[in-house]
Protein backbone atom coordinates (compact mmCIF):
# COMPACT_ATOMS: atom_id res chain seq x y z
CA UNK A 1 0.00 0.00 0.00
CA UNK A 2 1.34 3.40 -0.95
CA UNK A 3 2.36 5.73 1.87
CA UNK A 4 0.64 9.06 2.36
CA UNK A 5 2.77 11.81 0.89
CA UNK A 6 2.74 15.54 1.37
CA UNK A 7 3.65 17.41 -1.78
CA UNK A 8 6.21 16.48 -4.43
CA UNK A 9 8.74 13.84 -3.42
CA UNK A 10 12.20 12.84 -4.53
CA UNK A 11 14.13 9.83 -3.36
CA UNK A 12 17.49 10.17 -1.67
CA UNK A 13 20.07 7.70 -0.35
CA UNK A 14 23.79 7.45 0.34
CA UNK A 15 26.21 5.60 -1.87
CA UNK A 16 27.54 2.52 -0.10
CA UNK A 17 31.09 3.15 -1.27
CA UNK A 18 31.72 6.69 -0.05
CA UNK A 19 28.52 7.68 1.72
CA UNK A 20 27.86 10.49 -0.74
CA UNK A 21 24.36 11.96 -0.79
CA UNK A 22 22.57 10.97 -4.00
CA UNK A 23 19.16 11.22 -5.62
CA UNK A 24 17.40 8.73 -7.84
CA UNK A 25 17.40 10.30 -11.30
CA UNK A 26 14.81 10.07 -13.98
CA UNK A 27 17.29 8.21 -16.17
CA UNK A 28 17.51 5.45 -13.54
CA UNK A 29 20.96 6.44 -12.28
CA UNK A 30 21.92 8.04 -8.98
CA UNK A 31 22.72 11.72 -9.25
CA UNK A 32 24.64 14.05 -6.97
CA UNK A 33 22.38 16.97 -7.86
CA UNK A 34 18.90 17.07 -6.42
CA UNK A 35 17.81 18.95 -9.53
CA UNK A 36 18.46 15.80 -11.57
CA UNK A 37 16.15 13.77 -9.32
CA UNK A 38 13.01 12.08 -10.55
CA UNK A 39 10.05 13.68 -8.84
CA UNK A 40 6.80 11.99 -7.84
CA UNK A 41 3.56 13.87 -7.22
CA UNK A 42 1.37 10.90 -6.39
CA UNK A 43 1.48 8.18 -3.79
CA UNK A 44 1.81 5.53 -6.46
CA UNK A 45 4.62 7.50 -8.05
CA UNK A 46 6.41 7.74 -4.70
CA UNK A 47 5.95 4.02 -4.11
CA UNK A 48 7.43 3.37 -7.54
CA UNK A 49 10.50 5.43 -6.61
CA UNK A 50 10.89 3.36 -3.46
CA UNK A 51 10.54 0.13 -5.40
CA UNK A 52 13.21 1.25 -7.87
CA UNK A 53 15.52 2.26 -5.03
CA UNK A 54 15.05 -1.10 -3.31
CA UNK A 55 16.67 -2.78 -6.29
CA UNK A 56 19.82 -0.71 -5.75
CA UNK A 57 19.79 -1.59 -2.05
CA UNK A 58 19.71 -5.27 -2.96
CA UNK A 59 22.61 -4.82 -5.37
CA UNK A 60 24.57 -2.97 -2.66
CA UNK A 61 24.90 0.33 -4.48
CA UNK A 62 23.09 2.56 -2.02
CA UNK A 63 22.01 2.46 1.63
CA UNK A 64 19.23 4.01 3.67
CA UNK A 65 16.96 5.24 0.84
CA UNK A 66 14.03 7.46 1.77
CA UNK A 67 11.61 9.93 0.27
CA UNK A 68 11.89 13.63 0.98
CA UNK A 69 9.35 16.33 0.32
CA UNK A 70 10.54 19.12 -1.97
CA UNK A 71 9.35 22.44 -3.32
CA UNK A 72 9.49 22.58 -7.07
CA UNK A 73 10.76 26.06 -7.81
CA UNK A 74 10.59 25.59 -11.55
CA UNK A 75 14.34 25.81 -11.85
CA UNK A 76 15.05 23.04 -9.36
CA UNK A 77 14.04 21.31 -6.15
CA UNK A 78 14.46 22.62 -2.63
CA UNK A 79 13.88 20.19 0.27
CA UNK A 80 11.11 21.18 2.65
CA UNK A 81 12.84 19.84 5.78
CA UNK A 82 15.60 21.94 7.26
CA UNK A 83 17.76 18.89 7.88
CA UNK A 84 17.56 17.88 4.23
CA UNK A 85 18.52 21.36 3.11
CA UNK A 86 21.56 21.15 5.38
CA UNK A 87 22.30 17.65 4.17
CA UNK A 88 22.69 18.73 0.56
CA UNK A 89 24.39 22.02 1.39
CA UNK A 90 27.51 20.45 2.93
CA UNK A 91 29.25 21.84 6.01
CA UNK A 92 28.54 25.55 6.20
CA UNK A 93 31.70 26.10 8.20
CA UNK A 94 34.00 24.89 5.47
CA UNK A 95 32.19 25.72 2.25
CA UNK A 96 35.00 24.41 0.08
CA UNK A 97 34.09 20.91 1.29
CA UNK A 98 30.69 21.22 -0.28
CA UNK A 99 30.09 18.06 -2.24
CA UNK A 100 26.83 19.18 -3.78
CA UNK A 101 26.84 21.21 -6.98
CA UNK A 102 23.76 23.20 -6.02
CA UNK A 103 24.27 23.59 -2.31
CA UNK A 104 23.94 27.34 -2.30
CA UNK A 105 20.77 27.24 -4.29
CA UNK A 106 19.23 24.73 -1.94
CA UNK A 107 20.15 26.51 1.23
CA UNK A 108 19.84 30.20 1.51
CA UNK A 109 21.51 30.39 4.89
Amino acid sequence: MAKKIKGPQVLTANLLSDGMVVFLGSDGTWRASIDAADMARTEDGAAALEARAAVFVRTNHVVDPYLIAVDDTGSGFVPVAFRERRRIAGPSVQPFFNTQPNGRLAFAG
Binding site: G19, M20, V63, D64, R87, P91, T99
Partner: peptide, 12 residues
Amino acid sequence: LMNGLYLQLHAY
Protein backbone atom coordinates in the same frame (compact mmCIF):
# COMPACT_ATOMS: atom_id res chain seq x y z
CA LEU B 1 29.93 1.09 14.44
CA MET B 2 31.91 -1.17 16.74
CA ASN B 3 34.90 -0.13 14.68
CA GLY B 4 34.09 3.57 14.84
CA LEU B 5 32.66 3.93 11.34
CA TYR B 6 29.51 6.06 11.04
CA LEU B 7 27.51 7.09 8.02
CA GLN B 8 27.02 10.78 8.71
CA LEU B 9 25.16 13.54 6.99
CA HIS B 10 27.39 13.88 3.95
CA ALA B 11 29.82 10.97 4.10
CA TYR B 12 31.31 8.29 6.31
